[in-house]
Design a protein around this nucleic acid. Structure first.
Lengths: 279, 279
DNA sequence: AGCCTTTACGGCCGTCGTAAACATC
DNA sequence: GATGTTTACGACGGCCGTAAAGGCT
């Protein structure tokens, strides 16, 4: 189970093709074929069906593990190299809904303390931000998501710290029948159409199996998303602090902080500011 | 960062010697030396000092990551192979303090349901049990430890579920000055001598820096440990359900359940029994 | 028939072991 | 000087690429 093999396996699983995976990794198809054969021989079970190329149950399992292992491997490398030379800069990664007034003031405080600090912000979807935190591209991250109360977000990186928890709501247009309700049953939600907004509020956040998507919004602007809901293009799930609406039972919106002791002094300072400030 | 390299690096770090690590892995010293050199070249920083062999700060970082990565790699392999053939047996791993009446009754219920079930119990310290869960040696595990309220235990495996939470206490002899106190300050504890009981209640559980150890107890019997405390050999930390004593502030004793969907039907059944029964 | 995966085979690079040099206590 | 790590070098094996064969649709 070489990381090399895992990487090409993930590539094949994602692309659904030996040949395009090969050119993505700049191998020949032959090499990819051999690597997959090696993995299957090693684990003693077929991982992929051919024609069409699809994952077997064992393959699905391996894909999950492999992607996690690869990002953790990257995280280990980044952490070690930063242990010798901690960056003086402060690059913050954010998912769109993780931003809050408290973060903004904490950041302002740090900027005031050290005037010449190179500080920047990167906004992206959860996978992008977590990956950037793993590789050291960013020094600290705030990642949001929906989960059961008091439960952490299922993140591939250890050391996440909850810094905020909020009830979650379903955003609906003003004239929508759900508006009259105080709580929502899951049965009501399976019938609805949802806005597919992978960056702001991914469909995978929904407590619904196989949600039906209406419009797709690729941007990161919350106001635009709310506008789309208002216009009747579909529903979405949002933290209560962002929008008014109907509370979704047994779910909270949670923001977690992702950093490591090696991420440098500015990151540590920001981390302290945010975690000490927990109510 | 081959797993192979990480494994020998961990061996060197643990043994503090290139040569004994080599014979443990059945390599030559030369091979070990080359592998470490390769790792250091790859990461661009020394990981070990020679004469004496010790970890540099970067090396300490890498050791943490490497051990986690290796057990996760083992977990991935076990999970995939179990995805194709889930075991029908039920082997339960337990740390000594994770046992409770509820587990006992749940296990009895399962045994009653399927009379011929091969079910066994393995007791060991946390590292041993987590490792066994990773490699598939056991199908389900209950692991205890001390942590802040509502926080999960820092486990190297994902998917842990809290099944019990309890206040923690410091066990002291009846005539100890602390007996009169309702709460304990950390300052009081730094002065004390502790019983080093790595299996039942490891010193790493203590909220104290560099605790001073008196006697060492290698066994897994809680009654013996309590007897040792009574006899004045030192103090220890225990869940309130096991011993009377003084509540330790800001800590809880927590039991988590460790299993995977591939661990077989009996494991799933036990898991359901335990998690549904959470108060 | 055409596209894509597998198999066969040759060459290269990497990694291990032996053995000698080197450093440290 | 003894113990233990590094370096030099030769040999084996593994892995990739080229090229031909094999299977589905």
């Amino acid at each position: 189970m070489d990381p090399h093999l895992l990487r090409t396996f993930v590539a094949v699983a994602e692309t659904g093709s030996f040949s395009v995976a090969a050119q993505r990794l700049s191998y020949t198809q032959s090499a990819v074929s051999q690597q997959i054969a090696l993995l299957e021989a090693d684990l003693g079970t077929p991982l992929l069906t051919r024609r069409p190329v699809a994952l077997t149950p064992a393959g699905e399992r391996l894909q999950r593990h492999a992607t996690l292992l690869l990002t953790r491997l990257a995280a280990a490398r980044a952490d070690v190299t930063r242990a010798v030379a901690p960056p003086g800069r402060l690059i913050i990664g954010l998912t769109p809904l993780a931003w809050s007034r408290r973060i903004s003031t904490a950041l302002a405080a740090i900027r005031a303390e050290s005037a010449r600090l190179d500080s920047r912000v990167l906004v992206g979807d959860r996978a992008r931000i977590v990956d950037a935190a793993a590789t050291g591209e960013i020094d600290i991250a705030l990642v949001d998501g929906f989960t059961a109360p008091n439960d952490p977000l299922p993140l591939p990186l250890a050391g996440a710290i909850g810094v905020a928890e909020d009830t979650a709501v379903v955003a609906v247009p003003r004239d929508h029948p759900l508006t009259a309700r105080r709580t929502v049953e899951l049965a009501d939600l399976t019938e609805a159409y949802w806005i597919d907004a992978p960056v702001v509020s991914p469909l995978t956040n929904l407590p619904v199996d196989g949600p039906r998507a209406g419009l797709r919004y690729e941007g990161a602007d919350v106001a635009v998303l709310i506008g789309l809901v208002e216009a009747g293009h579909g529903l979405t799930v949002l933290p209560a602090s962002v929008a008014d609406g109907v509370p979704l039972p047994r779910m909270v919106h949670r923001v977690e902080l992702l950093t490591t002791p090696g991420a440098g002094a500015p990151a540590a300072r920001l981390s302290a500011l945010l975690t000490n400030a927990i109510p």
